[in-house]
């Protein structure tokens, strides 16, 4: 017997959010910066990173249904998502001009 499963409506709402955020991140990658236009604007970078984090959060909480799990697992997985997001952001910043 299963408990607290997300219903069809919630799953479809989550899917719609995931589709929209994928589109937002693709648009974010089109915002140029600099004279040659070859670099991403920080607005675009933040859009891409924030969309990736929130999409991953929705997958974990709704598709994987960890919202019905223990606080320890929820907190642990959210900490993992934050760590991975920071690794990706940090990786990008490290190779940008002006950062050591």
């Amino acid at each position: 017997m299963t408990t607290n499963l997300p219903g069809q409506r919630r799953l479809l709402q989550t899917w719609l959010i995931l589709m929209v955020l994928t589109g937002v991140s693709m648009i974010g990658a089109l915002i140029p910066m600099g004279e040659d236009g070859n670099r991403l604007a920080w607005t675009g970078v933040l859009m891409i990173i924030a969309a990736a984090y929130y999409k991953a959060h929705r997958i974990v909480m709704v598709y994987l249904n960890l919202r019905a799990s223990s606080p320890g697992w929820k907190g642990g997985l959210i900490a993992y998502l934050m760590l991975t997001t920071l690794v990706i952001l940090g990786s990008y910043m490290l190779s940008e001009p002006g950062f050591p």
């Binding site: 991140s25 969309a51 999409k55």
Partner: peptide, 23 residues
């Protein structure tokens, strides 16, 4: 099986911006 499949989703959600978008 679905938990494994969602893990595959989760990894791609980070891999896609890392390789294709953040350039």
């Amino acid at each position: 099986a679905a938990a494994f499949w969602h893990m595959v989703d989760l990894i791609w959600i980070f891999l896609y911006p890392l390789l294709y978008l953040l350039r």
